Amino acid sequence: MTIELRRIPGAPMAQAVHIRGHEFVADGSVQEGGADSGPNPHDLYDAALGACKALTVLWYARRKGLPVQDVHTVIERDASAERAGTYRLSARLQISGDLTDAQISELETVAQKCPVHKLMTTVTTEIGTSAERMP
């Protein structure tokens, strides 16, 4: 799969992000020199974790026939030690439905195993970068 980003003309930093048939804006905050017209890369990274946890819980609940009605996910970031090598994310899932405490606990366990959580904590990601003159 390919994801493409193109600078938005006239914007100091904003990028139009194209993923399959979807498009949205990523930008730096005003403090970073952007116009804050969209989430910054850290926001997107953090949001990927929250989305993955919510989607994983909903998928699992549907598969197991659990009566989940809604999932509200909150991700909190502590980047205070990022430069020292530690980036902390805290995920809180609020799940509605006629669920027992055991089912809520089961869904929490499932959320901890979502694919993005695994990517962030147990997988080695190799990144290659090249730069070339624009045609």
Rank of each mutant, 00 (worst) to 15 (best):
C114P: 08
L119T: 14
A102P: 07
V123R: 12
N40R: 14
Y45N: 01
L119A: 08
Q31V: 03
P9R: 03
G28Q: 11
R133K: 13
V30F: 05
P12D: 05
A81Y: 00
Y45F: 15
P115A: 07
I8E: 04
S130I: 00
Y87P: 01
R83K: 14
R77K: 14
V71I: 09
Q94K: 05
L5C: 12
M13K: 10
V57A: 02
P39I: 08
Q103N: 05
I75H: 05
D78L: 04
A102S: 12
D78G: 06
S90D: 10
L119F: 10
F24M: 10
V71F: 11
E4V: 13
K113Q: 15
R77L: 12
E76F: 02
R133V: 10
A79S: 15
R62F: 04
R83V: 13
N40I: 02
R83C: 08
N40H: 12
R92I: 11
R88I: 13
D46G: 04
S96K: 03
G28H: 07
P41Y: 06
S90K: 12
A84E: 15
L49A: 11
M1I: 00
A14P: 01
G10N: 03
T125F: 01
G97C: 01
M1L: 05
Q112R: 15
G38W: 07
V30M: 02
V57L: 03
L44V: 09
D27T: 04
H72M: 03
Q112Y: 00
R7M: 07
T129R: 06
A111R: 03
C114K: 03
A14M: 02
L66I: 08
Q94E: 12
A79F: 06
E82S: 15
A79N: 13
D70P: 01
G10K: 04
R92A: 12
Q94C: 03
L107Q: 09
C52I: 07
D70M: 06
D43W: 01
L119S: 14
C114M: 02
G10I: 09
A61P: 02
R20G: 09
E32R: 14
L107N: 08
G34P: 09
P115Y: 09
R77F: 01
D43R: 04
I75T: 11
R92P: 00
G97M: 03
P12A: 02
W59T: 14
T2I: 07
V68Q: 09
A61T: 01
Q69M: 12
V30E: 06
S105I: 00
P41A: 08
A111P: 03
L89I: 06
V123L: 04
I127Q: 06
D98Y: 01
R92T: 15
A79L: 09
D36P: 01
K53V: 12
Q15S: 04
L99S: 05
R7V: 10
L119V: 07
H22A: 08
G65H: 11
H22T: 06
D78M: 06
G128Q: 12
V25L: 06
S37D: 08
E132P: 00
D70G: 14
A48W: 02
E126T: 15
R133Y: 02
E4H: 06
T122W: 03
K113W: 06
I104L: 15
I19W: 02
A91Y: 08
